[in-house]
């Protein structure tokens, strides 16, 4: 008997327990971070004061700081982080390549360019910006799929074409931002890296809505997506329609990433990092989507807190995640095998 248990590595013995533990731990971490960002800033408040301010108890001193400044920031960080993590991992699983994340292949860049164009040139705001960003994201996804559709779309070709398209879109974004007279340049720089500065609860509403709709769509598609990882033929044999699944996943993932980008700017590398980190924490593939979403929220909220209070200067969250994400990308490149590696 003891031989048997030696032959089975511990982590694989009861994957469901480990999975639930990891997911619970991640949820607790995110909740703890939110509590931390609500109570601590330049100075720290007692938990009781925070609670009083949130419930709107009359005469609470901290009411403005907590509910007008810190709460919108935390909420926007949470929903945007969840969206980036979920959208990113959906792409990575669908294309079976950790490098095929929306911020590398140009989906984030297209949403960012469209959002900047809509805000600065067309002078629209709110829902319309999100809608324009999603339409642009879907258009660019279609363009990249079409351009790389030779000998399979999942390979290096798709990533390289995405990088080329990103460069083009980024040049549009820089142009619009440089031309815009009303925009403070420092503010533009902040937006370009992704920032939660000046967050308002109204900004979080479209992101939360997208999270419900597209996140739900992904949750319903998760099983088919799982089958797709085994290859199109196997998926077909399991009764999964490969093209239909890909269409739904693309729609959902682009929707998530584009709407979050329209609200916060392209926060560097959150979509790219969340999936691989979650995959290393979780045994097997189940729960990967939820895990990646939680990791995304953790990265955004923690990155924002570090950038605001733990560094000598106040920096937007995108600078922090960019500085963390780039070394990880370099590590993946060094480790990558010839097909780019799987998640």
């Amino acid at each position: 008997m003891s031989d048997m248990s030696l032959a089975t590595p511990r982590a694989y013995r009861r994957p469901s327990t480990r999975r639930i533990q990891v997911l619970a731990l991640l949820t607790a971490l995110v909740a703890g971070l939110i509590l931390l960002t609500l109570s601590c800033g330049r100075g720290c408040l007692a938990p009781g004061d925070v609670f009083a301010a949130l419930t709107g108890a009359p005469g609470a001193d901290a009411s403005f700081v907590v509910s007008e400044l810190r709460l919108p920031r935390a909420v926007l960080g949470l929903v945007a982080g969840l969206s980036f993590g979920l959208g990113g991992v959906a792409f990575q699983v669908m294309l079976r390549n950790p490098l095929a994340s929306p911020d590398i292949i140009g989906i984030s860049a297209s949403a960012g360019a469209a959002a900047v164009f809509a805000i600065v040139i067309l002078s629209v705001d709110g829902w319309l910006v999100s809608l324009i960003a999603v339409v642009a994201g879907l258009g660019v996804a279609l363009l990249i799929w079409t351009l790389s559709a030779r000998r399979g779309a999942a390979g290096a070709r798709l990533i390289l074409i995405g990088i080329g398209i990103s460069a083009m879109l980024d040049s549009i974004t820089s142009y619009v931002l440089l031309e815009a007279p009303a925009w403070d340049r420092a503010e533009a720089l902040r937006w370009l890296t992704g920032s939660l500065n000046g967050a308002q609860l109204t900004q979080a509403i479209p992101v939360a809505g997208a999270l419900l709709i597209f996140g739900g769509l992904l949750a319903f598609t998760a099983r088919d997506l799982e089958a797709l990882r085994l290859g199109d033929d196997t998926a077909q044999a399991l009764g999964v329609r490969a093209d239909g699944t890909r269409l739904r996943v693309t729609l959902a993932a682009v929707g998530l990433v584009a709407i979050a980008t329209a609200a916060t700017g392209p926060i560097a590398f959150v979509a790219f990092l969340s999936g691989p980190i979650a995959a290393r924490l979780l045994p097997g593939a189940k729960g990967l989507l939820l895990g990646a979403a939680l990791v995304g929220a953790f990265l955004v909220i923690a990155g924002d807190f570090v950038g605001q209070f733990l560094l000598p200067a106040r920096l937007p969250v995108g600078v922090v995640t960019g500085a963390v994400g780039a070394p990880f990308l370099l590590y993946l490149i060094i480790r990558a095998n010839k097909n780019g590696g799987t998640l």
Binding site: L189, L192, T193, A268, F269, A313, L315, P316, G318, V319, V320, G322, A323, G325, A326, P327, L329
Partner: peptide, 10 residues
């Protein structure tokens, strides 16, 4: 490039 850009902005 991304890392360097983040650093330049910082």
């Amino acid at each position: 490039s991304v890392a360097v850009s983040a650093f330049i902005i910082a």
